[in-house]
């Protein structure tokens, strides 16, 4: 599978990564290398082998349905970034985290 520069830009956009033209070109080279490696692996015959979904062949451990977390809002929100230019206020309001307005 061959990638081109517009694929790179699209993937970067989906991941909300801002990349320059130069970075895009570099990334194209790196990703193409990785895909080449995968192509090599695909040459191996894996007929009859169940694909693994995790690198370790163990299964999920389950947790009992008991509340163990307490209210840590104050501690977490102490970390919130400041709103606006040089403002002292944190980006929280009435217990809510504030972000730039998003409307569907």
């Amino acid at each position: 599978m061959a990638l081109n520069i517009s694929d790179i830009k699209r993937i970067a956009h989906l991941a909300r990564l801002e990349i320059s033209e130069q970075e895009a070109t570099q990334t194209l080279t790196k990703l193409t290398g990785i895909l080449g490696l995968i192509e090599q692996m695909q040459a191996v015959d894996t007929t009859g082998i169940t694909p693994m979904s995790h690198s370790q062949d163990v299964v999920q451990r389950l947790r009992d349905d008991v509340v163990t977390k307490t209210n840590m809002r104050e501690a977490f929100q102490a970390n919130a970034p400041k709103v606006g230019n040089g403002a002292a206020e944190k980006a929280v309001y009435g217990g809510l985290y504030l972000v730039s307005q998003v409307i569907e």
């Binding site: 509340v67 977390k69 809002r73 009435g94 985290y97």
Partner: peptide, 28 residues
């Protein structure tokens, strides 16, 4: 359930905002 699918934070409805949002819920 009493708790969230991937953490021990309570799922009770109607709590004050973010008082049941643990480090897993807020993705630290």
């Amino acid at each position: 359930t009493n708790t969230k699918i991937f953490s021990g934070a309570s799922t009770q409805y109607g709590a004050e905002p973010n008082t049941q949002a643990c480090e897993v819920s807020i993705a630290l």
